[in-house]
Amino acid sequence: MNLFRLLGDLSHLASILVLLHKIQTSRSCRGISFKTQALYVAVFVARYLDLFWRYISLYNSAMKVFFIGSSCYILYLMKYRYRPTNDPSIDTFRIEYLLVPCAILSLIFNYNFMPTEILWSFSIFLESVAILPQLFMLQRTGEAEAITTHYLAALGIYRALYIPNWIYRYFTEGVIDPIAVTAGIVQTGLYLDFFYVYFTKVLQGQKFELPA
């Protein structure tokens, strides 16, 4: 564990708490892509079920339980409790365009051709693109509530912090994880446009609005 990874994980944790806060206080999931949230459940379940056979640390296990539990809870909130505020007509990204290529990639690129390792690779690839339905929705509506942008920023910062973490681990431990690093760089890249608007507008007190 190093500082970059710890701060990254905390940022990930914060992003989920911000999202839950947004839904609970506004009693609405307006502006949140159900598809992205469903993809995160798939990501966490595919990757973190190793909880049952691979113990790393209490920290690691507790985080895994939290991520699986909170992502399922968010789906429940969107699908049942605040269902009327969820508008599927603007959440139109075709997720099969993500699921199928990720499944194929995970069969080709994995560290061991066995179900658990293929699932791990699949979750890494899927996580890297799971935000696309959400970004697509943002692009379509052209604006977002400030709190939704804080959620996305925290999520993007989490990914960005994993990059210095890998650099640090390469020099201190000599380990390199090409699958995670490649997918992680792609994933962080997807946030660049968003970050630009977030840092130049939202943090200056302006509304998050995309140029027409």
Partner: peptide, 10 residues
Amino acid sequence: APPVQGHDEL
């Protein structure tokens, strides 16, 4: 060979 050594990252 790289890290099947645990996937210790989240």
